[in-house]
Amino acid sequence: MTTVALKPATMAQALTRALRDAMAADPSVHVMGEDVGTLGGVFRVTDGLAKEFGEDRCTDTPLAEAGILGTAVGMAMYGLRPVVEMQFDAFAYPAFEQLVSHVSRMRNRTRGAMPLPITIRIPYGGGIGGVEHHSDSSEAYYMATPGLHVVTPATVADAYGLLRASIASDDPVVFFEPKRLYWSKDSWNPEEPQKVEPIGRAVVRRAGRRATLITYGPSVPVCLEAAEAARAEGWDLEVVDLRSLVPFDDETVTASVRRTGRAVVVHESTGFGGPGGEIAARVTERCFHYLEAPVLRVAGFDIPYPPPMLERHHLPGVDRILDAVGRLQWEAGS
């Protein structure tokens, strides 16, 4: 396989590379969605794939999300491995019935006879100045649907490694791409041998002793920034990047919170009914006697996603995270 230098390597480029490598390695991998062919996707993640693999492997579909996912189900039934692009978080909703009623259940419905290895890529989250319907964090809906894996990278290397693992998975994976991080770069080098990351394992992004920030996707860099700022104030914070909401890595999260005794869950999704409630409950159930304070949440407010000129008031930022850390009952305990 030829290696093409992609410099500077952004998360979007790592995702492109993952798709390309998966398509080259396995002829059953098919990319499909709106504008993914000739245009290369509105975020250019599928750039060049139609040219390299042909329009039968990277297909511009009609503009109909239920149809895209519904036909992908049939393709998977016949042994293909579709990778579906939903153009934006809020544009994935028309496909919700196919996802909930069929994609998530087909393996279970058929006692394992008919698995559906479909990857559903959804650009999600805010912070890019998008107008209404372009900035939702919809992961809680999918987390609440048994049979789906829900995965989201926060680093360029994970974007590659987790997308390869998702495409290789025999279970359907909802792959949330933090669109705010599409243009982010880190030390990922496309010319080095690439690593496929296992689905279902969280990682400690930053080790710390005083409290754990539990987060994922677009909020990971924000939490790392908050941890850096906290150090100046004498707080040594750990940051756990979940990477996979389903399966949930209780082991890594529990071990971290038992070490630190305090935890704040951070995400853009709404707080009420959002992932943080589940995570806080799980932490409390497993770490009760280790906790010095209740698990707090810093989440998006319980409002429809705001217009772009107001979104900075909605998104969890460094100050709001540090504020929550400050409320972890330091006076009462250690």
């Binding site: 519904g70 049939g74 393709m75 016949y78």
Partner: peptide, 13 residues
């Protein structure tokens, strides 16, 4: 909901 499945399967074949 089974109709798009039939289309996708036929297309894949």
């Amino acid at each position: 909901t089974q109709l798009p499945h039939a289309v996708g399967l036929a297309h894949a074949a």
